[in-house]
Design a protein around this nucleic acid. Structure first.
Lengths: 150, 150
DNA sequence: ATAATTAAGTACTGATTCGGACATATTAAT
DNA sequence: ATTAATATGTCCGAATCAGTACTTAATTAT
C-alpha cells in the first residue's frame, strides 16, 4: 500500500464518517447521561446499563453482561462492586464451574429496574421518535456494516 | 405521555438503533486505539486526536480544539498537560484576549504529526475502504440526523 | 461608568475506560 | 494422566471522562 502524505491523508473520504460516528454517539451519550442524572436515580450510565441488562432475569455471568453492555471485564468488576455497595445487585459463584460468577438484582435492584428502566426509555423515546422508521432501519443496517468492518 | 411498563419499554423500536450505534462506535474505537498502541507512537487516542487536529496549523485555542475533538474542556487541560510534558505541544496566552490560551505543536510535535497522522489514517483506511461510497454517504447523512436529534 | 452576564481555562472529584498481569478453574490435546 | 491451551474474574496503573466550582477576563446592559 502506498504511503500517504499528511495532505492526502487528510483528504480521505472516510474521515467525515468517522467524525459523524463519534459526533452522533457523543450527542446520544450526553443526553443519556443527562436523563439519568436528572432522574435522581443515582445511577451512572454504566451502572444503569448493567441494571437494565439484568432486567428481570434470574442473574447472569459477568461475561454475558459484558457482551451485552460492551463493558470490558476489567471495568465491569468495579461497576458491579459499586452496585453491590448500593445494595442493587448481589454476586455468587456458580457450582459446576468455579470460574463463573453470577450477578443478579436484589429486591431493591428489581425495584430500581422497574422504576428507572421505563422512565429512562421514555426519556430517550421523546428524541428517537423524531426519526422515521425508514431512517431507523437504514441506520441500523449501516451501523451493523460499520461494526463488522472491524 | 403515557407511562411505559418495563415490558413495553423493552419493546421500543429504537432500542436496536441505540445498540448498534454504541456497538459500531465501540468497535471503531477499539480498533483506533489498537492502531495507536501498535504504532509505538506513545500517543493515547485523545492525545492523537489533539495532535492530528493541530495538524500544521499555527495553533488553536483550547475551545476550538475541544469543539473539533469533542473533548470537554476539563478533560482537555489534562490531555494538553501530558502532551506538553512530552514536548509535543506548547501553550501561550494570547494578547488582546487574556482568557484564551493558544496550543500549538512544537517542532517535535510537527514531526510526530507528519509521521503518525498518515500512518494512522492508512491503518484506518484499510477497514473503511471496504465500505462502498454509497453506504458511506448514507451513513454520514443518517448519523448527522441522529446527532441532531439531541 | 458600573454592574451583570458571558466566556475561557484550570483544579478537583468520583467514576469509568482499557489493557495487561495474575489466579484459578475448565477443557483439549497428547 | 499430564500437559497445554482456554476461559472467567479480579486487581492494578495510567488516562480519560463529564460535571462543578473557581479564577480571570471580556462583553453587554443599564
Amino acid at each position: 500500500m502506498a504511503k500517504l502524505s499528511a495532505k492526502s491523508a487528510s483528504e480521505q473520504s472516510f474521515i467525515p464518517l468517522m467524525q459523524e460516528l463519534a459526533g452522533a454517539y457523543q450527542a446520544f451519550s450526553l443526553y443519556d447521561a443527562e436523563g439519568l442524572r436528572k432522574s435522581g436515580s443515582d445511577l451512572t450510565p454504566s451502572q444503569a446499563r448493567v441494571i437494565f441488562t439484568l432486567g428481570d432475569s434470574e442473574g447472569m455471568t459477568c461475561k454475558d453482561i459484558g457482551d451485552i453492555t460492551l463493558i470490558t471485564k476489567g471495568t465491569l468488576t468495579g461497576v458491579v462492586d459499586r452496585l453491590e455497595e448500593k445494595g442493587l445487585v448481589e454476586r455468587w459463584s456458580v457450582e459446576g464451574d468455579g470460574r463463573k460468577t453470577i450477578v443478579a438484582l436484589t429486591r431493591r435492584g428489581k425495584r430500581a429496574y422497574q422504576q428507572e428502566f421505563p422512565r429512562h426509555i421514555g426519556f430517550l423515546k421523546e428524541k428517537f421518535d423524531r426519526l422515521s422508521a425508514s431512517d431507523r432501519n437504514q441506520a441500523v443496517a449501516l451501523l451493523e456494516k460499520i461494526k463488522d468492518l472491524f
